[in-house]
Structure formats: structure tokens, C-alpha cells
Design a protein around this nucleic acid. Structure first.
Lengths: 359, 359
DNA sequence: TTGAAAGCGGTACCAA
DNA sequence: TTGGTACCGCTTTCAA
């Protein structure tokens, strides 16, 4: 039966000491020009009275405009559109501060991202939310922007050796591990499993594969892993390579598609008559997957919660920019496992990207 | 390459029309004393300029203190402690408004909740967050508090025929459905499955059971469901009834424990030497479950995200109290399925309830 | 029916 | 080293 402490204002403490609010303000903000003993007295009574700044007043007065640029690829829109929607949603919900967000697009991961970031050097902004497709290539420009005073926040995938301020993503290693565990649950006998990924230079994809391989080795030693297939996020290549895989010598009984770009892979499976025959775990959720999950042709999909990633990324970046202490945000969301029976909880949001739902 | 619309203030629109801010304010708040045509003109330019009230200024001027009471049981602390922590976390994060939160506890669901709510009639507050254990019994007091001007928000379980303003909970039906699907994946042959629940008068528990039964019938007709066991959230009764169940004539091969109170049930399983022999799906997460999931003795647990429930409940209630339009918040979170391989993502938070993590 | 002006609780600048 | 004060955007009262 306790309650949050009563809060005193700045003039309460000024009145209590018979001094001016200016002085109190100086003390509370560690500004120069206050004698040590008044400073001590102010701090003491501030503590005693339970001073809590009125954030509304503070925000009103400061009225700072934070400018944030969002630099994300157009492809894969299944993933990046809801991510952008999450950013918009969080931006609209900001209270007590002006935030200006601009969105910038380039074709796909690795194609034009460096250049677009480069161009951001001209129009200085407070922070940039972006996805490093190929971290090695981008480290230099990230560091230059950082040196320029721009807070760089990675979303969806990391660039750990750069000077980015932090990361918001799904926990990629765990996604891979889950995929392995799910396949292990369904494949009781000795079999081969395969993975199809986007681009192994992208850390997120590499992490998934690591989690997958490690967990497979631990939980399902009877399943052996075929070499990973890299689709480079190109539909045609994904299709071609999948066909090759399925017609290869050792045929997989289980398949983990670790990129959201799964349509061409599923098409290949369909054409080879293998949909429903082999166990498939996919990544993320979009319209084409729904009937396949409903009919059990896909065992499960690992939803990376792009909307939430965007929302959290935005909130983290703003918090970082406002904080004094500047803790580095490192947030890995738990992926949602979507089966047939919880699918309806996630489908409503496929059309309506402005939804603010909390899953 | 678009940007979020610039927001105009009240004086921007006053200036644009050459009128005073007082008039604009009257229009925007639907107050009397404005001619119809000025009203129309104001609304039009407000729309055109993209008027967005400065919430900081609004809060500062109004300087209202929202008082919220939280009325929740002490038991089951695994669940309600993190839920309270979520509320605290959200309360601390409020910007630009004074919110006072008081916490009130009663022993367990159905024991003293009515009385404690009753006592809230005396100290009027703006809103109450609470869990209706037995909705029928509480409907009357909920309605009286509502009539009294208090916004009643259900958390964790609903009281649909009362005049509560809304609900924040995990999606109970889906929890049950998932439990059934998981058991169906693991039990390929004809078998019996059983459920152990808390109290079927609690809507949340009834919904879980409905989801479980319906999904079992649809996805796994080879599994037959034994009559539900009600533990009434009492450890001894749960233990006794589980023993009876396990020694009964038709022995279950799968078990769904739909209340967070699973320890006595697991103890009974252990003593009967059945842990690891029959498939078990539990609810929520706490220290005792961790080793059982790690060793595969529990197939999975359905995490109802109590921290997030608390956080979202608080935010929804505050939004409701601040909004003019008063949309009824009805939020069902997607439960997280916790397997062995994603368990580490959830364990870190078991000790540290003040954590603000986003899973 | 409308306009003018006083604050809400801080911040920051200028004067003392 | 201090005190005084204008101002942030909005609400509200009083006067016109």
C-alpha cells in the first residue's frame, strides 16, 4: 500500500531557503557560479522536499527539435515497411518534444546504402536509424557520421566494429536456434536439413546460421546440415539455387529459410512437389505465407517483429539523444514463433501497417 | 523521401486567420460562443496546417494530477510482481504529466478483491487497474466505481459484462490453442491429454480451456481430453488433484497447466516419476521452471508477458484518461512460446523486475 | 462573439 | 555569486 513520492518544485525549494529560483536552477544543473555552501544547502533541501522536475515545463521551455533520418532499403518491403510504420508510430506518440523524421530509401541492402549515408553528411541531423547490410563496407562512413556528431543506431542487423551507438534487432542467434529446435521436434529420424539465407556478410544472417548449426548439433545430432545457400536477396537466384538444392544428391527433409525473402524458395518447393512433404521453417510474415501456415505446409515462421523493432529503435534513439548519461542501447527482441494456432493474432496487421499493436 | 508533417500550434492558426488564440482554443475544444463560420474556418485551417497540440504546454497549464490505483493480488507473485513492475516502469517514464500511482494488495484472486475495490469508493481516483478473478461477483462494484467517475481497466482477465473501460491481457484463447498444437506435434498416436487450471469462473482460464479444447478437436482428433481439473489456485489442492489424476484410470500422455501456479503440479509429476515421460506445457515463467525446460522435461511454457501487460495497461489507462475521444482499449498480447532454445532470452529478467526489456 | 492577458514550472540571460 | 525576468504553448478568465 505504498505510493510514489510527492514532488516539490523548484520554487518550493527557493522559498524554503529564501533564495531565488535562478540559484536553485544553477545548482540543480551543476552550473558554475554558486558558492559551495549554498549549493550544499540547495541540494539538501531538494533531497528533503523530494524535488522532481516538472517535465512538461522543462519540455515546453527547451522545446528542442530533434532531427532523425531513417535510411532503409525499399526491399524487402514485407519487413522494412512495417519497420518504418513502427518508427512513424513512435514518432507520432512523442510527447513534449518536437521530433522531425525524414525517410530515405535505396533499392536493397548493399545497393546504394553507402552512398545514401554519405549524402547525409551534408544535412546534419541528430541521429540516423539504418540497417548495415554489409558492415565492413559501411564502418568507415558510420564512423565519419559519428565523428560528425550524428548518433548512428543500427536496426535489424549490427555493425559491431563501427562506432554506432547501439542496436535494435530481433535476437538472430535465437531465431536460428529455434528453427533448429522446431525441426528437431518434427524430424525424429536421421535426416538432412538445409538453410537458405540472404547474405552471410550481413551479421544478422550469419548469427541465425550460427544459432541454427549450434543448436542442431546439440539437440539433434541425428540431423546433418547441408552447406548454406546464399540467395543474395535476389528472387531469381533464390529460386534457381533452391531447385538445385532440391534436385541435388542429398535431399533435405527439413528447411530453414532465414531471410524474409522466402517466396521464390517456396515456389520452387511447390513446383518440385515438396511443399507439405518436408518440414519448413520460414522467417517473418506476409500475405503469401498465411495459407501455407494455415494448411500446415509451413511448420512455423519466426516473426522478427519489424513494427516493434522500428518503434523501439526510435524510442531508444530519442532516449539516447535526450539522456545525459548516454547508455548504449543494445536491444534484442525475442522473435515470435508463429504456428497455425496463433497465426490469427498476427495476420490482422498485415494490411494495416499503421496499427499500434503490441505483439 | 518524405517526412512527417510539421505540426502547427494554436497561434499559427490564429495568425493565419487574423483572429485571436482564444477563439481558436474555443473551437478546438468545442466550447460555446463561436460563430459557425469562424468555427468552420478554424477547423479547416487547423486541418490544413496539421495542428498538433503541444502536450507539454497543455499538461503544464492544466497541471492535472492523474491518480491511479492498482488493485492486484499478492499471489501469484511470479505473475503479479512483474506486472506491477511493468506499471511502475511505465509510470516512471511518463513525460509531461503528473501521475500518482498507489498500489493495493489482497491475498489472492477472489479473496478480498471486492472489499478492497469497495474501499476505493472513498478515496476517489481517476482510474483503477485490477484483475477480476470472479467477474460475476465484481460486476456490481465495478459498475459503481464507474458511475463514480473512475475508469476501470481490467488486466490479465476480463469482466466483459461490467462497465470497465477496457482490457489488457495475454490472448488466453490462443494460449490454450498453442498448448494443444504443441501437444499435437509431439503426440502422434492416440492418447489422452489433461488440463489443470486455476478457477474456471476466471474468464482468462475459461478462455484458455476453450482454445485448448477447440484446437485439440481440430488439429488432433486422436487426442482425447480428460475433464479439466480446477486447482482453485491452492497449492495443496493442486497437488492432491494432480496425484489423483495421474493415478486415475485413464492416464494422460500430455498435460497443459494453464495457471502460473504450476509448482505443486510439477512436484506431483516428479514424485510419480512422470516428469520427462509425459509431455507438459506450462504457463508463465519463474525460477523453478528453468531447469525443467533446459532439460526438456517441460516441452514449452506459454509466457503471458506480465511485465508488458502492466506497462501497456498503464499506458492505455493514461491515454484513455487524457483522450477526448475515449476509445475503449482492448489489447490482447500474443503470448510468447518459450522453448529450450529461446529460454535464455527470458531468464535474465526473472530476478531483475525493474528491467524495461521489450520482449 | 471575440480579444487580451495572466499564469502553469522551468530555463537562460542580463543586471546587480 | 546572486536576483530578476522574459518566454515556451496552452487554458481560462475578464473585458470589450
Amino acid at each position: 500500500m505504498n505510493s510514489t513520492p510527492r514532488s516539490a518544485g523548484i520554487k518550493d525549494i527557493a522559498r524554503a531557503l529564501g533564495i531565488s529560483i535562478g540559484t536553485v536552477d544553477r545548482v540543480l544543473h551543476n552550473r558554475t557560479g554558486v558558492s559551495l555552501k549554498t549549493k550544499a544547502r540547495v541540494l539538501e533541501t531538494a533531497e528533503k522536499l523530494g524535488y522532481k522536475p516538472n517535465l512538461a515545463a522543462q519540455a515546453l521551455k527547451l522545446n528542442r527539435t530533434i532531427e532523425i533520418a531513417v535510411v532503409l532499403p525499399k526491399q524487402i518491403s514485407h519487413f522494412f515497411d512495417p519497420l518504418r510504420a513502427g518508427i512513424r508510430s513512435a514518432a507520432e506518440a512523442t510527447v513534449g518534444m518536437r521530433v522531425k523524421v525524414t525517410f530515405h530509401e535505396y533499392p536493397r541492402l548493399g545497393q546504394g546504402d553507402g552512398e545514401l549515408l554519405e549524402s547525409r553528411l551534408k544535412e546534419k541531423c541528430d541521429g540516423i536509424i539504418f540497417t548495415p547490410g554489409n558492415p565492413r563496407k559501411l564502418d568507415s562512413i558510420i564512423n565519419r557520421l559519428t565523428a560528425h556528431g550524428t548518433a548512428m543506431l543500427c536496426v535489424a542487423s549490427d555493425a559491431p566494429s563501427s562506432e554506432r551507438i547501439g542496436l535494435v534487432s530481433a535476437h538472430a542467434y535465437t531465431s536460428g536456434a529455434l528453427a533448429a529446435e522446431l525441426l528437431a521436434h518434427k524430424l525424429a529420424r536421421k535426416a538432412h536439413v538445409a538453410t537458405i539465407t540472404g547474405e552471410l556478410t550481413t551479421l544478422d544472417h550469419a548469427d541465425k546460421l550460427r544459432g541454427f548449426a549450434a543448436t542442431l548439433a546439440m539437440l539433434a545430432p541425428h540431423l546433418s546440415l547441408l552447406p548454406a545457400v546464399e540467395s543474395h536477396e535476389r528472387p531469381k537466384e533464390a529460386y534457381r539455387q533452391t531447385i538445385a538444392l532440391l534436385r541435388g544428391e542429398t535431399k533435405p527433409q527439413g528447411l530453414y529459410i532465414s531471410t524474409a525473402n522466402s517466396v521464390p524458395v517456396l515456389q520452387a518447393l511447390e513446383e518440385e512437389g515438396l511443399l507439405g512433404k518436408i518440414q519448413v521453417v520460414t522467417t517473418d510474415l506476409f500475405q503469401e505465407l498465411v495459407p501455407l501456415i494455415e494448411t500446415g505446409k509451413i511448420l512455423a515462421t519466426l516473426y522478427q517483429r519489424p513494427f516493434t523493432q522500428g518503434k523501439v529503435a526510435f524510442e531508444s534513439l530519442v532516449a539516447y539523444l535526450l539522456e545525459e548519461k548516454k547508455a548504449s542501447p543494445m536491444i534484442r527482441l525475442a522473435p515470435h514463433i508463429i504456428f497455425r494456432s496463433n497465426l490469427p493474432l498476427f495476420t490482422d496487421r498485415l494490411d494495416d501497417l499503421t496499427d499500434t499493436s503490441q505483439s
